[in-house]
Amino acid sequence: MTTQGDVLVSIQRIARRFGDVVALDDVSIDIRDNEFFALLGPSGCGKTTLLRVLAGFEEPDAGQVLLGDTDLLALPPHRRPVNLMFQSYALFPHMSVERNVAYGLEREGTAKAEVRTRVGEVLETVGLSELAKRRPSQLSGGQRQRVALARAIVKRPRLLLLDEPLSALDRKVRAEMQLELKRLQHDVGITFVVVTHDQEEAMSMADRIAVMHEGTVQQVDSPVDLYQRPSNLFVAQFIGTSNLFAGDAVTGGIRFAGRTLPGVVVGEPISGASRLLVRPEDTVLVEPRDALLSGRVIETQFFGGVSTVAITVAGHDVPVLLTRQGAPSAVRDAEVHLSWDPAKAVVLSA
């Protein structure tokens, strides 16, 4: 396992607006040394803007960023020990793949022979050795993306910022690259900040994830905590699939259709209108006497390893979803009874 130490980058109260659009609103995140950190959030929530602030291409309106003890914002972009892989790649069109990748090393004054070896290695890593002499215009979208990735990782900076690094790759290459990135982090000890739209990618790769929404950080946590203990409704809905019951908060759960649905409160006490989050895999079918809710099966789906059952429940306008290993445990139109472990259900402020 990688060893994660102290805070490497401390982002403190960064704000950036473009006219009326608030791209970043009071963003504070601490990124630890040698951490694989993911930024996750819907389109336009400010992920790229945050990376551009770190790389020095966007001047924040307020806030500061410390890299170790140094004030990162005081350094001009070309002096920052930070490499950014651009979302749009920004490959130099007049240079070959090889020269694109070598460019950063040449700027550091790395010896010619070493530049050649390292460029060769990294092109091997991203599987583009054969295309080294081509120009970017002669490559496919996925190949360009890998050149951009190679160009960013070849310098092995202290902080590597990757803006959607794998979005254009097919499933297989993508899985390979994910492993490569993890390996690189492990072997070389680089701190990664990766922007991704792909929840599963973030969950499977990152040590910690920051979920962003409309320029604000909603929650920073490990993938497991984010999934099991979302701190608000946005995170609960954004990460994974969820059953959310609406009702007023009461001790030990919420009031829903005349009964109390049990769940736990994480953090601050909650009162008034609330939601109860129950993940589909925590929802189970039980005997009538143990039921928390009852309903009728409207659809079942079998995916091989797992199956899903959709159930209508009176007073709840979307079907309640239930997943389990193996074949579906109910048939269509059957009357079924639901329950869950109260410790796995979370009460959230609506």
Partner: peptide
């Protein structure tokens, strides 16, 4: 962004002008 990319890879403003 091409100029930004050059700067990000360590090129000074003059170098960026010359190379990009």
């Amino acid at each position: 962004q091409l100029r930004e990319a050059a700067a990000n890879l360590g090129a000074s403003p003059w170098r960026t002008f010359r190379d990009v």
